[in-house]
């Protein structure tokens, strides 16, 4: 098992597709979530990945409201040796992962080849996700029987969204690059 503290950074809004987010949020340069605890465990092809971060005002229900945004976190891994982390992959250099949202029963499988290209799909069999908010912290644990890309490259990236700070999409706190997990 490997435990590490990740000092998160604000995802750069200057890179966001379209003209609005990059200008409207150009002052968003500080990470809303300063750090996250990452715990990873690998046994053969099996993986257990746990992310823990402070969330003073958790948002886990946005139903019947227009201006609430849910807490969330995602784990991304590269599928090629040179898949860039900061742009969530690139053409033919995909990243893939899992996206958990506090208001959903099940996380999504995600895949992207660049900013704005993320596709969500139902989680495949073999995944187990547990989430708990207690004492001002979210603890989200993902387990899988096999994650081929992670087995191969042994690195991942973490993203955290604080719903109470209206974070969504490209407004998020992220690990400062790929993080080695073995």
């Amino acid at each position: 098992m490997k435990q590490q503290t990740l000092n998160l950074v604000a995802a750069p809004t200057s890179m966001q597709p379209g003209g609005y987010v990059m200008k409207a949020y150009q002052s968003s340069i500080e990470a809303i979530t300063a750090s996250a605890e990452l715990e990873t465990e690998n046994a053969g092809k099996r993986w257990r990945i746990q992310v823990r971060w402070a969330a003073e005002k958790p948002v886990n229900d946005i139903s019947s409201e227009t201006d609430l945004f849910p807490d969330a976190c995602a784990i991304l891994v590269p599928t090629t040796a040179d898949a860039p982390w900061i742009t969530m992959g690139d053409k033919d250099k995909a990243v893939e992962g899992i996206l958990w949202r506090a208001d959903k029963d099940q996380p999504w499988s995600v895949r992207a080849e660049g900013l704005g290209t993320m596709e969500r799909s139902a989680i495949t069999e073999g995944w187990k996700t547990e989430a708990e908010w207690t004492g001002g912290y979210w603890t989200v644990t993902f387990s899988t029987n096999n994650w081929a890309a992670l087995n191969q490259f042994k690195q991942l990236a973490v993203a955290v969204w604080q719903g109470s700070a209206r974070e969504r999409g490209g407004l998020k706190s992220v690990s400062p690059g790929w993080v080695a997990v073995s």
Partner: peptide, 23 residues
């Protein structure tokens, strides 16, 4: 659409809405 609502924010006429059921 992933329901980020930047469009709702940005439209100065406030003519984009959020379907909060389908998100």
């Amino acid at each position: 659409c992933h329901g980020y609502r930047f469009c709702v924010e940005a439209c100065p006429y406030k003519k984009v809405y959020f379907d909060h059921e389908r998100q």
